Amino acid sequence: MSFDAWLTKNPYIENSIPTFTREEPFSNLLMDLQTKGWSVQDDFFSADFTQALMDEVENIQNAYMLQAGVGRKQDHQVVLDARRDYIQWIDPDKPIKKDFLKMMETLRVALNRRLFLGLFDYEAHFARYEKGAFYEKHIDAFKGESNRILSTVLYLNESWEYGDGGELVIYDEHNPEIEVGRYSPIKGRLAIFLSECFYHEVLVAKKTRHSVAGWFRVNNTTGKTLDPDQ
């Protein structure tokens, strides 16, 4: 039995919700990353698992979310000209959050086995873009200056239609003026890309838009510096 096939038959039990419906949920994603450095996969998780995540983020009141900014947790700075979304970091304090983080940990292992990236951990937050919110073109990590290696975005929106805005735009690795993909934030769609290589942006949302944004990281702890959270 393949590693992916084992996953489909052994869902995590915090929620007793099957995580995947595909027999090999990681295979296309891994191939895309190996050949072009980014991938967009529809219906990545099972419908029930995705719905549980949607229920969780939709029930978060704005008062319990932070105005998103630039910089990692402890270096967070609000820059409204750059982005206007709200976030809540995901901690394993509820069953569905535990299951999601466990599943991304399993993906981390698969990525290291296939691509030898040396990924150490994963961090993520729920994101809410209300009407009029956006995130200007940016890159998640500058070469040699960050421990973020792979960026992920999982979309949690029901009945998203053409004209609702909020699309993710990905730009060419070698020429950030060339658009290589534009994707609506539809329910269950996962985007993943090399953090240092691909500029991207979120176009203005015409209605409330939810997602999970996350990063697979390497450990940059040295003899003089302790990597944050480690």
Rank of each mutant, 00 (worst) to 15 (best):
L53Q: 08
K206A: 08
G163R: 05
Y199T: 01
T8S: 15
E158D: 13
P25G: 13
R108M: 15
E173T: 04
P25W: 08
I90D: 08
Q230A: 10
E201C: 10
V109W: 04
H210T: 12
F26P: 07
N157K: 10
L117N: 08
A5P: 00
Q230R: 05
P185H: 07
I87R: 14
L101C: 14
L150S: 09
R83D: 02
I186A: 05
K98F: 07
M104T: 09
L156Q: 13
H174K: 14
R113E: 15
S46E: 10
N59E: 12
I149N: 12
S16C: 03
G165F: 05
F20P: 02
L80A: 15
P228D: 13
T19R: 06
E161A: 15
I192T: 12
R114I: 15
I90P: 00
E58Y: 03
V40M: 10
L53D: 14
R113N: 15
L111P: 08
L107S: 06
H76N: 03
P25T: 13
G188Q: 03
N10W: 04
S39Q: 06
K102L: 11
L226K: 12
F193E: 02
D229K: 11
F126Y: 13
T106R: 09
E105K: 09
Y171I: 05
S151E: 00
F45L: 08
E167R: 03
T35I: 11
G37T: 13
S46D: 14
N112P: 00
L150E: 03
P176V: 01
G69F: 01
H174A: 13
V218S: 09
E123V: 00
I149P: 07
Q230M: 11
C197I: 00
E196R: 01
E173D: 08
L107F: 08
A52R: 13
K98N: 11
L168T: 05
K224Y: 08
R217I: 01
S27G: 09
D85V: 07
I178E: 11
S39P: 00
I87C: 14
L117P: 01
R209A: 04
R72I: 02
N59S: 15
K143E: 15
L150K: 07
P92W: 01
F100A: 07
E173L: 14
L115H: 04
K94C: 06
K187P: 12
A110G: 04
F3Y: 13
K98C: 12
L115P: 03
L115C: 03
G144P: 07
D121V: 09
G69C: 00
G71V: 00
V202C: 08
S146N: 08
F49C: 06
K224P: 02
Q77F: 01
C197R: 12
D172E: 14
W6G: 02
I139A: 04
N28Q: 12
V153S: 10
K73D: 12
Q61A: 04
K224F: 11
S46A: 10
Y86S: 11
Y122P: 09
T8P: 07
A47R: 07
N28C: 11
R182F: 00
D140R: 00
L29R: 06
G69P: 03
F26Y: 15
R72L: 02
